[in-house]
Structure formats: C-alpha cells, structure tokens
Design a protein around this nucleic acid. Structure first.
Lengths: 134, 134
DNA sequence: CGGCTAATTTAGAGTTAGTCTAAATTCAAT
DNA sequence: ATTGAATTTAGACTAACTCTAAATTAGCCG
C-alpha cells in the first residue's frame, strides 16, 4: 500500500484527495467541480463524481484549496488560499484574483456600519477584462 | 379589464408582476423566489411558479427590484435598488443591507489592481449579527 | 499476522433551484 | 371583431450538487 500521505496538519490525504489537489494546484485558472472531475479522471480513472465533491469539501476544510461562489453557475476552486479578492469579466466570464491592501480597514468600516462582529470581507469587482477591452 | 399599469419607464406591469413587486415591497427582509411564490399565491391564487420567476427577471431588468446571490442556496430579492452592501450572519443567516460611502473609491482601487474596466463592486461582510452576539 | 472498527469511496438515486416548452390566454392595435 | 405579439400556465427538464447504502480500504489491537 502506498504510504499514507498527510497534510501539514495531519489529515489523511488519500490517493483520491491527492489527485484532486494535484489538479487544482496545476491549473492557473479556476476550474469548476466538473472540470476537476474530468481532469482527476485522467489521473485516477476510477474516481467518482461524489468523491471529487467529498475531496473538495475535505481540502477546503483543511485549508488547502479555496472555493469561490458566485450566484450563477457552478463554484470555482482556487489553489490560492490566502485572503484575496476577485474580478469577474462581464463579457468573457474570466475570473482574476487580486489583493486589496486596504481589506482590513474595509472590514472594520463594514463592521461599523452593519453592527456585525466581523469575520471576513469578500469583494468582487465586475467589469471588463483587459483582453475584452480592446 | 383593469387599466394596464406601467412602470415609470413605460413597461407593462401586469397583475402578476404587480403582485410579485407588491410582495417584495411589503417585506423588510430578503425573501427567496420560493417565499415570493408562496406570498404571491395569497394575492393571486392562480399565479404559477414560472411566472414568479419571469416576473422577477422582468422587475430586475426594469430596475424595480434587486437580486442578491450568494453561492449557497437560493437568490434573495431586495426592494432596495440603490447600490449597497450586505452583511451576512454566520450563525443565523440574517442578511442586512448597509452602505459603505467609500464604495466609489473602492471600485477604483479594485480596478487599478485588477486592470479591469470597472462596472460595479460587490462587498459582503461575513460575521455575527448583533442578535447572535449576546 | 488476523480481526475489528472507523473512515473513505463508489454508483446511482434524490434534491434544489431554476429554466424551458408548448399550448392557452390576454392584450393593444387595427 | 381580428390579428399578432406578449404573457401566463403546467409541467417537463436541467445543472449542480448531496445523500444513501453497500463495498473497499485503512489504522489499530492483541
């Protein structure tokens, strides 16, 4: 049996979970669960749809991947797990990561206005990406 | 026949659309399409599910209601159509509107970082609402 | 090692939220 | 009244997940 790999924090990384994580880490873009399923099947032909979802949930809980949800269509997954913001192109749908350095103050300002005890802020810019602009 | 009501910009407001709009305008909270369907049925017993969705789409396009989507679960609808932000309670799920006056600069900052031509920014604070805090 | 228990995976059924279709109805304008 | 466009309806359909129950696999104990 292959040695049981572990995450840095000690969780079990099965072959299936490794395959899913591998797919996400190799991609520059933000694949959907379906994209990941297709790619994971190349590496591990028997892997099932449900397992991809289970693995995504597990990896997310372990902090190894990040899930991005917009109301429309499917969740995207991101190998970048540090806090960051997103820009979504209204023409081609491209999704780009960026970081807003003022995020911490922003969260405080939002907390003040809303009277909530803040946990996180999520900011999305909608607009037209450089490629679609010309 | 009842006189055909119109929106300020001249679109037709059928009985069904009026019922849906009425439901949203009367509520302080942010109902889902399903909630709206149930409430609209009280006013207009024959109204169908599909019509509620059609009406919501129409009213949204006419700028009379605002749709809020989080990845999880169903879209919420909001009678407040001016730009604003949301705070979502991580304990009870309550959704609160608030406005961040620095939104315009924020959009510019996000546009600079991402190189997108900006159209709108959407900000969501996740945290614990005052009711859940005590 | 051999057995035990818990965790994981699988296939496929089920669920949720919303869209689509085609027929019927309503409408506004001739 | 007639006509053509817009709207509504019921119900079938779809996408994206989630759940279930059975099978497999894995870590642990003696």
């Amino acid at each position: 049996m292959a040695k049981p790999n572990k995450t840095e924090t000690g969780e079990k990384l099965t072959r299936q979970r490794e395959a899913v994580l591998g797919v996400i880490r190799e991609r520059e873009d933000h694949p959907t669960a379906n994209d990941i399923f297709a790619a994971a099947r190349q590496r591990l032909p028997g892997i099932s749809y449900a397992t991809v979802y289970n693995s995504l949930r597990f990896l997310k809980a372990a902090g190894l991947v990040h899930e991005i949800k917009f109301g429309d269509s499917a969740s995207r997954y991101d190998r970048e797990t540090d806090r960051h913001d997103h820009a979504l192109c209204s023409q081609c749908g491209k999704l780009v990561d960026f970081d807003l350095p003022q995020a911490a103050e922003l969260m405080k300002a939002a907390a003040r206005r809303s009277k909530f005890k803040p946990e996180s802020v999520h900011l999305t810019l909608k607009g037209v990406c450089p490629d679609c602009c010309d």
